[in-house]
């Protein structure tokens, strides 16, 4: 799946990486993909709803909602992690409720890492999706209505398809952001091998011990490739959607 080969020093670096992909490294990568994937899937509907409200809604408190959505972008991530700990920790109001009713614990679990990644990715996803919704010309929706489409059908046949490239862009940005999430995650769910040790946390851990340059390099390259790959995939998806110019993610 991963073709690791473009580094400043291709031949020797490629050789070393190929032979050195240990099961531990693979588990870190898979965990990162799982955490980010779940984070993005969970955030998609929430982000879309918020983006729709901010793009089309008219209600008191819109500015406040906008600010709240953007808070994770500007707050120190460690504060976001601490707030998650307070709310979703085993003694936190939400955390205790989740444990009592659903038997779900988030603290020190990969699910908690996904929650932290989701919260941190939310502002970027909402921003991208909001722009894509705002870019849909309401005049086209009006035209659809005069042709006999109900508001719901107009949404699914006109608004949603036209906004799709932007929604994909939002999802990809969220995914890339989740792959890189560090501060809130390590505060909320710590650094537990196989459970919460994602790529950035593994890099940080490796840097704490001298002589781990090779592992750090490998993880860093993987992080770059994953992020780049995500962006390229979404660009291809956006071009395939048949919208032509103006439908680019990059």
């Amino acid at each position: 799946m991963l073709r690791i080969g473009t580094t400043p020093n291709p031949s020797s670096e490629e050789e070393r990486l190929r032979t050195d992909m240990t099961p531990e490294l693979w588990s870190i990568i898979l965990l990162s993909l799982k955490v980010s994937g779940v984070a993005v899937l969970l955030t998609m509907p929430v982000a879309f709803g918020l983006a729709w409200l901010l793009a089309r809604g008219r209600f008191p408190g819109k500015v406040l909602l906008d600010a709240l959505v953007h808070l994770p972008l500007v707050l120190p991530p460690v504060v976001t992690g601490w707030l998650l700990l307070i709310a979703f920790g085993n003694n936190g109001p939400v955390g205790r409720w989740l444990t009592d009713w659903f038997g779900v614990t988030l603290m020190f679990r990969w699910t908690g890492a996904a929650l932290a990644a989701a919260v941190m990715a939310l502002p970027l996803m909402v921003r991208a999706m909001r722009l894509s919704i705002e870019a849909v010309d309401p005049k086209l929706e009006g035209a659809a209505r005069t042709l006999g489409a109900s508001p719901l059908r107009t949404f699914f046949s006109i608004t949603l398809p036209l906004a799709t490239p932007g929604l994909l862009a939002g999802a990809v940005l969220g995914f890339a952001r989740s792959i890189g999430e560090f501060g809130a995650t390590i505060t909320f769910v710590s650094n537990i091998p196989g459970e919460t040790r994602t790529i950035p946390i593994a890099i940080y851990g490796a840097l704490q011990i001298p002589g781990n340059d090779a592992e750090v390099t490998k993880l860093a390259i993987i992080a770059v490739l994953l992020s780049l790959g995500a962006l390229l995939i979404s660009e291809i998806l956006a071009r395939r959607s048949g919208l032509g110019r103006g439908s680019h993610v990059l």
């Binding site: 009006g142 035209a143 659809a144 005069t146 006109i158 398809p161 048949g242 032509g244």
Partner: peptide
């Protein structure tokens, strides 16, 4: 009704 607009407003997708 049928509405013909100045700018066409064909669905681009």
């Amino acid at each position: 009704l049928g509405y013909v607009f100045q700018d066409g407003r064909l669905f681009p997708h």
